[in-house]
Write a protein that binds this DNA or RNA. Structure first.
Lengths: 114, 114
DNA sequence: CGGAATCCGGAACGATACTG
DNA sequence: CAGTATCGTTCCGGATTCCG
């Protein structure tokens, strides 16, 4: 008894829908970086050390298809690709910010220094 | 190059730490239900139709160990078990509330009715 | 330089049966 | 009533290779 369907996938709660769109390990870190300026593919790659090409391109593509980011290919040699955030993407920033703050709070409670 | 370790697990961002504590499919729905009143195990089970005993007990145990909820066993026959939210758990409610609101917003953008 | 395609392992998750 | 044990499956993400 699903509450709603979207693209042949069942969702039971709105929170679940948020996770489907900007959840996972890398999407929020990517959006967080893109909120201030445009980034090149290689810059994003270097800024998240443990991130593989597979996961980076996969996550960028999904964020692009879901309207959270823009992609601009500049036909230089070699080619340059710039990623930027959309208005829809910017709407997610306060959410991520709140989750970050709450994360720091939980870490502090658990005696984790950062 | 992990940013920090906790219980032999690597975390790279505070958001990741939040997901480790109250992420997954069921923890937020459980906390959301417990915010208003105490619930019995069987009541929680019935209120989330697609939730198995295995996942319910597993998630309740983790929330208990992490201090988000309380458990009280009332030695009647048959035994009754009451779950309630802690102050630490209540701190997560505004986060969940914001995620819910944002989820409804995303759903509306995507033409999903609820 | 900026990806895509394929393969694969482990953890998460589900279904079912059983128990104090 | 409130779980636990066991087994099977799914899926996320890593490693590797290749391409315009």
């Amino acid at each position: 008894m699903p509450q709603f369907l979207k693209d042949n996938k069942k969702y039971y709660t709105p929170v679940e829908y948020v996770f489907a769109k900007i959840g996972g390990t890398y999407k929020m870190p990517l959006l967080w970086r893109l909120k201030d300026k445009t980034w090149r593919y290689s810059e994003l790659k270097e800024s998240i050390a443990h991130l593989s090409d597979r996961m980076l391109s996969k996550n960028l593509k999904e964020l692009l298809n879901d309207g959270f980011i823009n992609k601009e290919v500049i036909p230089e040699v070699p080619v340059r690709t710039e990623y930027s955030i959309t208005e829809k993407g910017m709407n997610s920033i306060p959410i991520i910010s709140m989750l970050r703050d709450y994360g720091f709070e939980l870490m502090k409670d658990d005696g984790i220094k950062h």
